[in-house]
Write a protein that binds this DNA or RNA. Structure first.
Length: 208
DNA sequence: GCGACAG
DNA sequence: ATCTTGTCGC
């Protein structure tokens, strides 16, 4: 029962040509983290917004039906729907400056991971933060290289597994790394907005 | 053909 | 991601 997802691959190649890998003039006061967990065929998506002082500004939990399977390299098919629906609801009550997504940005076979697609879709500065690498080779200087280009950075915390940071959209890799490091509290592996969003998404009782 | 493979 | 009990370590 395999399907043709060739269209999705072409779509990613198309979107990748529209990704902005530079910083844009923007405030850096509020940060949104968003993540999804699953139960059967239901996706539970949570988004939270915090400020530079880690104060909670806003949060939403949204339930959605799963429409696509998980296919390595095509995570956006499965998660962009729930993420965009949730961000739309969140937007009704609060705005934010930077979005952090659980998954790769341009550190991707077609330079268009989930974080890049979502960032492009909402047209906001977005950073990709993944817990595992999908492609590329690790360099001693902590950068990740793929097809001759520096597309990511490995952030390793003592005693913890590393995380992989990459540009989602409308931000540079340098600033992406600075932000992720500032948002990662001592003793933690995951930057706060994503860590809280991940916890909330697994709390299925807080969904309508 | 073989191995790898975000969440 | 999710399925799962006890268990090792700070």
């Amino acid at each position: 029962m395999e399907k043709n997802f060739a269209w999705a691959i072409e779509f990613q190649k198309q979107i990748s040509t529209r990704i902005n890998t530079r910083d844009i003039p923007n405030k850096l006061e509020t940060f949104c983290g968003i993540d999804v967990s699953y139960k059967g065929n239901i996706a539970y998506c949570s988004a939270v917004i915090i400020n530079s002082n880690f104060d909670l500004i806003s949060s939403v939990n949204v339930k959605c039906k799963v429409k696509y399977p998980y296919i390595p390299g095509l995570l956006f098919l499965r998660e962009s729907g729930p993420l965009l629906s949730t961000l739309r609801i969140l937007g009704i009550q609060s705005d934010f400056d930077i979005l952090l997504v659980d998954g790769h940005g341009i550190l991707h076979p077609r330079k268009c991971g989930l974080a890049s697609y979502v960032g492009y879709a909402i047209d906001k500065p977005t950073i990709g933060v993944a817990k595992n690498i999908l492609c590329g080779s690790l360099r001693k200087d902590h950068f990740v290289e793929y097809n001759g280009s520096i597309l990511g950075y490995v952030f390793k915390k003592e005693g913890k597994n590393p995380i992989y940071i990459s540009i989602g959209h409308k931000i540079s890799l340098k600033k992406s790394v600075q932000i992720v490091q500032k948002l990662t509290r001592g003793g933690q592996r995951i930057p706060e907005p994503l860590r809280i969003a991940n916890i909330n998404s697994k709390n299925h009782l807080n969904f309508d």
